[in-house]
Design a protein around this nucleic acid. Structure first.
Lengths: 229, 229
DNA sequence: AGGCTGGTGTAAAGGTTCGGTAAAGGCAAA
DNA sequence: TTTGCCTTTACCGAACCTTTACACCAGCCT
């Protein structure tokens, strides 16, 4: 399916522009307007690559990168207005994989994203492919499979995507619009019941427990019940 | 341990300058002043990473890269005077990992070299030049043959490439676009069923087991089922 | 309470896309 | 020319995403 990009950029206009372009280029985009949200989303294991602006309102992008590197080797491309060379060198030292000065050409951004993803796909996997466990569920991103008590669930591509997003945000509510965007890659339109159907099918495949693993938050979205320790 | 860089650059002065700087930065440098020598050295498995000028007296740097990519996934950083954007995009499409416009800052070159090498070290790739065994299959890259229970499989050149790539990533899903690029060396276009045919033929030659050794992951690609211990 | 409204659950039907494969075509080397 | 192999074409069946339809429930208003 499509690669998942996390775009951390405070300039709403630029973020929107890049987000749309990346979407047309076949990426599934998550957005964050500040460092705190960006870091949280990046650590949620719900994206394959990060595009990170250095100038952010709250936490400096380099500090976000530092914190991220303490946990993961998620590929990161830095973005900045400052053509400052020192900035650039520091960025690499902190662990960036690439660096693009603004104003950035969207086509170049895409080319560099793809070059990096290709390199990673060839070399044996980063921690994006690390298996993660949520109670009796185990996500194996490399195989694109989810196991329940060591038995693989027979999920379709979309079901896998939906469940994996819910699991990445286990314990908190994922809004329907976000779930739609992230898992299905398109916007939620009125009267579109597609997502509800996928949830329904997922619940069936997960076994219709009580209380349900996937809780409905009326008017908002869904949430995977955080598993008891 | 120092990393071995191959520097392919026709401008003697610049090459000498970069070579010296790279040496002071702890790299072991091999040099080539034209495309032909560069290609030969790169294929000699005697370096870890290549810095490749696009403007070369004999073969165009992009063609050198193309030929290199037919054989190996050696990391390559392109270098060029032309700030031409198209050149840049083409470079990435052909399989470059990075791109630096001249005049290049040696410090930035080193930073990018290190970023790329670090990425590769993190992702520890499987050595595709070594003999590998997967259950009853054994890949002998030296002979370009694959043995099943010590009996050689009668594979065509393309079939060998496809199966070899699948085996190198045994247990994880290889996307069709990647498989196409890595095994067939070209981009997957719409309505191209070539890959499907090779998979079909491979399955036949491997014996149509159940469950199939080569699993289809609908909408994504294929995956070689990891053999039971 | 009763009824309205809008969000949700889900069975079933619809329609499209995708993958498997036989067979034909094309191309290049022997 | 023959041979071997890669590619294209074509058809079929299966998978599965989406739509439709109806039932249900919660909250709110009267």
């Amino acid at each position: 399916m499509q690669n998942r990009v996390l775009l951390v950029e405070d300039d709403d206009e630029l973020r929107e522009l890049l987000s749309q372009y990346l979407t047309t280029q076949g990426f599934s985009v998550r957005e964050a307007a500040n460092g705190r949200d960006g870091l949280a989303l990046a650590l949620a294991h719900d994206c394959d690559i990060v595009v990170l602006d250095i100038m952010l309102p709250d936490i400096n992008g380099l500090d976000v990168l530092r914190e991220l590197r303490a946990e993961t080797h998620l590929p990161v491309i830095l973005l900045t207005a400052r053509g400052d060379e020192t900035d650039r060198i520091v960025g690499f030292e902190v662990g960036a994989d690439d660096y693009i000065p603004k104003p950035c050409n969207p086509r170049e951004l895409v080319a560099r994203l793809q070059a990096l993803l290709r390199r990673i796909a060839w070399d044996q996997k980063t921690d994006v492919d690390a298996t993660r466990t949520y109670g009796d569920l185990r996500v194996e991103p490399g195989q694109r499979r989810i196991y329940q008590d060591d038995a693989p669930l027979e999920l379709t591509a979309t079901e896998y995507e939906v469940l994996q997003v819910l699991l990445a945000h286990a314990g908190s509510v994922v809004r329907k619009t976000d779930l739609m965007q992230w898992a299905l890659g398109r916007r939620l339109e009125a009267y579109d019941r597609t997502l509800d159907m996928h949830i329904s099918n997922l619940r069936k495949k997960l076994g219709n427990d009580d209380p349900p693993r996937i809780e409905t938050v009326r008017g908002l979205g869904y949430s995977y019940r955080v598993p008891a320790q």
